[in-house]
Simulated scan of single mutants.
Amino acid sequence: MDLRLDAVSVAVDGASLVRDLSLHVARGRVVGLIGPNGSGKSTALRCVYRALRPTRGTVRIGGDDLSALTLRQSARRVAALTQQGGSDLDFTVEEVVALGRAPHKRGNEPLTGAERELCRRVMDRLDLLRLAARGVLSLSGGERQRVLVARALVQEPEVLVLDEPTNHLDIRHQVEVLSMLRDDELTVLVVLHDLNLAAAACDRIGVLHQGRIVAEGSPGEVLTAQLVRDVFGVEACVVAHPVTGSPQVLYSLVSTPEGRWT
């Protein structure tokens, strides 16, 4: 299913966090949101996984107004990896991953054999099988992040929403996680701070600045030296990757006359 945000605005305590945001994520495509801290990226995602209700506008999945669905119905259709997705309870890795099936179960209904096999396959793909019996509180930050990605994938959603999924991951696992999103042909909306990862992983990129979309298009259309300067306040050179041709942003450290670094 596709995902569509139609003129979504969010105001909290009189502050406008997102303004008239319209964005379309076509079925099976990966769309990235980039922008400076405080530009409204995470707020936009919260509207999709229903942690926030838009002040104005509509979020639609496959044409259905998300707000008209029950929480169980929307949980079956949207899975989210948030920046606050951890737990203080020392469940095992396999227990946390299995929680992804919760929207599809009732009460304490046990997993079916097919669901257990699904959990095993996803853990295997994310290099977690060897950690299955470990408590999550004993894991490194990167290992925990992979567990949370696995939990979201086990949910088998129509739409996957990810807020900084590569946090704490080493280079190998960053590449593996983002490659998996593309290989599985999921409908994905993802926030990334690394512009080069966004260029490599995303079909399209939306740039948020002060709560508004200021640019949207393919990575090659969006990631220009002028945009990086205007939106992020950083001098950069943008070149083509020698193998893939995707844009690569090379940053410059330039000292201002006041001695500050931009």
Rank of each mutant, 00 (worst) to 15 (best):
M1R: 05
M1V: 08
R4V: 12
D6Q: 14
A7Q: 15
S9L: 01
V10T: 11
A11L: 07
A11E: 13
S16Q: 15
S16H: 14
R19P: 02
R19N: 08
L23Y: 02
G28M: 00
V31H: 02
P36H: 01
P36C: 09
N37G: 12
N37Q: 14
S42K: 01
A44T: 15
C47D: 04
R50S: 05
T55Q: 04
T58D: 12
T58C: 14
V59N: 03
L66C: 10
T70N: 09
L71H: 13
S74A: 15
A75L: 07
R77H: 04
A80N: 08
T82P: 05
Q83T: 14
G85C: 08
S87D: 08
S87A: 12
D88I: 11
D90M: 06
F91C: 06
T92V: 06
V93K: 00
V93G: 01
V96D: 11
P103I: 06
P110A: 10
T112N: 10
T112E: 03
R120W: 13
R121K: 12
R125Q: 12
R125H: 09
L126C: 04
D127K: 08
D127Y: 04
L128W: 02
L129R: 11
R130H: 15
G135E: 03
V136H: 00
S138T: 12
G142E: 03
Q145Y: 05
R146H: 04
A150L: 06
R151D: 00
R151V: 00
E156K: 13
P157S: 11
L160W: 02
L162N: 03
E164L: 07
P165L: 02
T166N: 10
T166Q: 06
T166I: 10
N167F: 04
H168A: 13
H168T: 10
I171W: 07
H173G: 08
Q174F: 04
E176P: 00
L178V: 07
S179P: 07
R182G: 15
D183W: 08
L189D: 01
V190N: 01
L195V: 15
L197G: 04
A198K: 00
A199V: 01
C202S: 05
D203M: 12
R204L: 11
L208R: 03
Q210M: 12
G217A: 08
G220W: 03
E221S: 12
L223Y: 02
A225K: 03
L227Y: 02
R229T: 11
D230L: 10
C237F: 11
A240G: 12
P247L: 14
L250V: 15
Y251Q: 15
Y251E: 13
S252C: 13
T256S: 15
P257M: 12
E258S: 11
E258P: 05
W261V: 11
